[in-house]
Design a binder for these strands. Structure first.
Ligand SMILES: [Zn+2]
Ligand SMILES: [Zn+2]
Ligand SMILES: [Zn+2]
Ligand SMILES: [Zn+2]
Lengths: 146, 146
DNA sequence: CCTAATGTCTCTAGCAACTATAGCTTCAAG
DNA sequence: CTTGAAGCTATAGTTGCTAGAGACATTAGG
């Protein structure tokens, strides 16, 4: 059995994050030692590694919750799991498309500015006027931080 | 003079967001009508459009705060503004690189799954074991000090 | 065995950048 | 003059953690 610190080290997850996952019910309540400290089994470690890996691949905690409960029922069809993965792929692709447009616009701004006074700065000028942009990079939703 | 609703419509920003920007000091306190409703000038509209456009390009509110205060001093050098834009470009490029790796991994997962039971699902299997991944897509923990 | 240094406990609050709700007041159209 | 939309303030919720305070547990050294 591992203490929370050892578990975090082993799975590459910070200790408060583990407690947070337990708090929101993503990890089951841990066993406790005589002194009330959390103890984890190898199984718990695998579950945490799964979560961590899915987070690294950009899945939301909500999606991970679903994936975990699916993985607990091995004889069911995997269609739901595949659908979650496909949705995540679509999400990543749409973010990629948007970021690609952003990159082009930012490059244009940076390249076009000759340096000098703010009054003549192409960066400031373009930020004030989207019609100076080459692409329509606007999007109702602004990208999630990731 | 525009009401907050008209301003929001004109600039493509939701009304609560405008009030939020005022609250955090990104927009100055608006003039008020006799009945205490906010009124905006064309100048305020331009400022809001600037903010919105910069947000659309992924700049943080903190960066926008700096850009706005720079744009208020037209005879200063634009080096600082250019630096902010370059930093944003670098940020976008790094996110692009990460998302590209993620996309590849997700595609691999989705393609490799033949469908069937959860027990044989490649999606679940890969999520549980990063060593099945082709790339090292994991989150960088340390900021590059360049 | 004692002590000091970690590690862990709970609880609360904070981060970005909004968004939503509740319970009012004001305004504009009919 | 009435009604319904739009505005006001204030508070809380969102996502996924992260940081702190103050108390208790465990472990390594002397
Ligand atoms: Zn410039
Ligand atoms: Zn633009
Ligand atoms: Zn599958
Ligand atoms: Zn992986």
């Amino acid at each position: 059995m591992l203490t929370i610190g050892k578990l975090g080290e082993a799975a590459g997850v910070k200790v408060p994050t583990i407690r947070y996952y337990e708090q929101i019910g993503l990890l089951p309540e841990a066993e406790r030692s005589a002194g009330n400290q959390r103890l984890y089994s190898r199984k718990a470690m695998e579950r945490l590694a799964f979560i961590r890996h899915a987070r690294d691949l950009g899945f939301t905690l909500e999606a991970i919750r679903d994936l975990l409960s699916l993985s607990d029922r091995p004889d069911q069809s995997c269609a739901a799991a595949d659908a979650i993965a496909k949705a995540q792929l679509a999400e990543v692709e749409s973010r990629l498309a948007r970021l690609t447009a952003l990159k082009a616009e930012l490059e244009r701004m940076v390249v076009q500015c000759a340096g000098g006074k703010i009054a003549d700065c192409r960066v400031i000028e373009v930020l004030g006027d989207h019609s100076l942009c080459a692409t329509d990079h606007r999007h109702p939703e602004i990208e999630a931080t990731q």
